[in-house]
Every structure is written in C-alpha cells, then in structure tokens.
Design a binder for these strands. Structure first.
Lengths: 211, 211
DNA sequence: GTCTATACGAAGATAGAC
DNA sequence: GTCTATCTTCGTATAGAC
C-alpha cells in the first residue's frame, strides 16, 4: 500500500466504505468527476480493490452521487452555527473561511466537489445531487436573511449571489493560486448583506430590474 | 456525415481548423475538457479525421488551449462596447445577457468553456489560458470602474465578484435548468455597481474588512 | 491535406475463486 | 469481503499510403 494522503482536518473514517466516499469527494474536487477513477479512489482511501462493487453495486455513478450528497451536507454543517445565531454574515464567513483554508492547505489544488458533480455530463444522478445541494444552500441563506428582516425576494436574490460568487471565487482563486479573489468576494458579500439587513423594513430593497 | 449542430448566432467558419476550435469550445462548455474527445470534435465540426494532427501537432492539449484563448476573446468582445461607453453596468448586462441566451437556446446544456479549462487537471496549458482569461476580464472591469470614479482597490473587488458571481450563476442556472439564478445575480451586481459608482469620490468605499 | 490501420494505455464492469 | 483475471470500450497518438 502506498502512502495515503489524509485531509488533515478530518479524522479517518473507520469503515472502508466511508473512506471511499470521503476520498471520492476530495478527488472530485481536485480532478473532476470524469477524471476520478476507481484506481485513484482505491489508492487515496486505502480501501481494497475487490470491495468496490460490494459496497457500491451501482458502480461509479453510485459512489459519485453519494459523495456529492455528502459534500452538500458538509456545507450545510458549515452553515449550521450561523443559522442558530440568525447571522447571515457569519454564514458567508464560515463558508468563505472554509474554502480559504482548504485552498491554502492544498496549495490551490482542491476544488468544490459539488461543482464538479454539477458539471459532469455523464451522470444524471450526480447532477441531481448537485442541484439539490445548491437549492438547499440557497434556501438556508434565504431563510436566514428573511429572519434578519430582508424581504423574501431580495433574500433569495442575495442567497443566489452568495453561492454563485463564492463558488466562482473558489475557481478563480484556484486558477490564480491566490486567495485574493475569494477574499474580495467575501468582503463584497459582507457589504451587500450588511446593507440589505440595515435597510430591512425601511424600503422594499431591489433596484427594479428584472430583465 | 451526420447533421452538424451549429451555434445559431455564429456563422460557420470557413476553414476546418477554425471550425474545430469553435466546436471544441462548445463541447468543452457542455461536457468538460476531459470528456471532450477528438471523435466528438470531428463529428461536431464536420472536419476530416485525418487532419487533426496536421492542424494541431500538439494534439488535444494544443486544441484545448487555443479554444480556451478563443473563448476568453469572445467575452472580451462582449465587453468591448461597454468599455467604449465607459459603462461597467452595461458590461455586466452584456455578459449576463449572453449567457442568458446561450443557456436558454441550448436548453441549459451549454456551459462556460473557460471554467471547464480552469477545472481541467491534466492540461497545464489550458489552465494557464483560463487564468489569463480571468485576469484579463478582471482587469477590464477594474479599468472601467476606475474610469467611473471608483477607487482602484474597490474597483478590483467589484471586478472579482462580477466575474465570480456570473460564472457561478451560469453553473447554478444550468443545474436548475432555469435562468433565475443568473437573473438574480445580474440584478444584484447592478445594485452593487450603481451604489459604488454613485458613491464615487464621496467616500473611499469598502467596508474595512480584509480578513 | 486527408485517409486507414494500428499501437498502446486506461477506464468501468463482471465472473468466479477464496 | 476481498482477491485476481478478463471482457469490452474508448481515449490519444503514430505510421504510412494516397
């Protein structure tokens, strides 16, 4: 067995099946779904070759789908504390800080596995899992902002730009091997959220453009 | 020869080489770099099999790199008119409107080829071409906003979020098969740009957070 | 410039032994 | 649960004829 790269911050899962899912998650983010092979997952997770189809009878499609749903949950957990505190700005910080660390620690090799799943054209199951994750995140942002007094339509709008901008910034930061784009985006989202929350109740927000 | 799907808005290029680049661009956006094979490019472009390595001695890597640079130029051309008019908001509209149309016309199958290149792990040349495109777009936004009176640092910050958010929104809109995320993001960027330009000279902008 | 034929590797998946 | 062996398909790339 070769040396297994660990995630550092995450403790090793006990069961090979869970290790394979976690490895798939990391590899998807770094190489994309198409380029994530069973061989890589086996090597990265240290799981035995012969057990792939035992644990995942649905083959690669099943593994990728489960990993994507797991990835969606990771971000939901990042948002959990901010949700309890009813603080949308803390939510942006939590996700932004997470990616800041992951990108830096991986020397800008890591990427978002949910994005990878969303962009995979061969697996409808993975795409659906990614879509579900996006919508769940958006819903959580929307609810947080509404509780902070932002009207629903504006809240949903801010949720969309928060997710889009952070995910886009992760790609840009990786491409430029610098967290600068991510930091700038988080900073702008701060201002945007503060302004919207500050204006809560004062006016109906929005700028009248719907295209 | 099978029926060749055309882009509709783009006239057919005369030379097989150019057709191959344009086809590669479309296929990269839809399927990703890894899943874009020569077979697909040949079929899509109608170019002859035997001429691949004649036109692209560097093989797939060369084709993908050239297509990515071409894709970067497409967006630069979209920004050109807005640059002449010194109107950053029009720039967002131009790119946003472009993706709105492309997504709708393709029934949400199309995607950004530059993103695909940025996420490809196997081709350093493609990644570099994507990075160059991002930085060029960001620079154009920054210059436009500076001419509109926005301080440099803030201008760069707004450029980063404009690119990140639109690229992210293209992914989300495709995943949800709806242009709603893209429209919401464009709308929020409108507000953000207007506010920043409106405050030009009044204060140094920013919200004091650098992380 | 374009063709066919082919080399070579790697992928996902299955079968059957242990 | 895990192993090895094998099937099949598909990818890039090259060689050499036309």
């Amino acid at each position: 067995m070769t040396i297994v790269r660990t995630q550092g911050r995450t403790r090793m899962a006990k069961h090979p099946r869970d290790r394979m899912i976690e490895s798939a998650l990391v590899l998807m983010g770094e190489y994309g779904v198409e380029a994530t092979s069973f061989s890589q997952v086996i090597e990265h997770s240290g799981a035995p070759r012969g057990s792939i189809y035992h644990h995942f009878p649905g083959g690669k499609e099943q593994l990728i789908e489960e990993a994507t749903r797991y990835g969606g949950d990771v971000v939901v957990k990042l948002l959990a504390e901010a949700i309890e505190q009813h603080d949308p700005v803390a939510a942006v910080d939590s996700v932004g800080g997470f990616w800041h660390t992951v990108l830096y620690d991986s020397d800008f090799a890591a990427g978002c596995p949910v994005i990878a799943a969303a962009l995979d054209s061969r697996s409808p199951a993975a795409r659906k899992a990614a879509r579900d994750a996006f919508q769940r995140w958006e819903q959580l942002y929307t609810e947080m902002l509404q509780r902070a007094g932002v009207p629903e339509e504006r809240a949903r709008s801010l949720g969309s730009i928060a997710i889009s901008a952070v995910e886009g910034a992760v790609i840009l930061s990786r491409a430029q091997r610098s967290n600068a784009p991510l930091e700038r985006v988080v900073n702008e989202l701060h201002g945007l959220f503060h302004e919207a929350i500050g204006n809560a109740g004062t006016q109906s927000a929005g700028n009248g453009r719907t295209q």
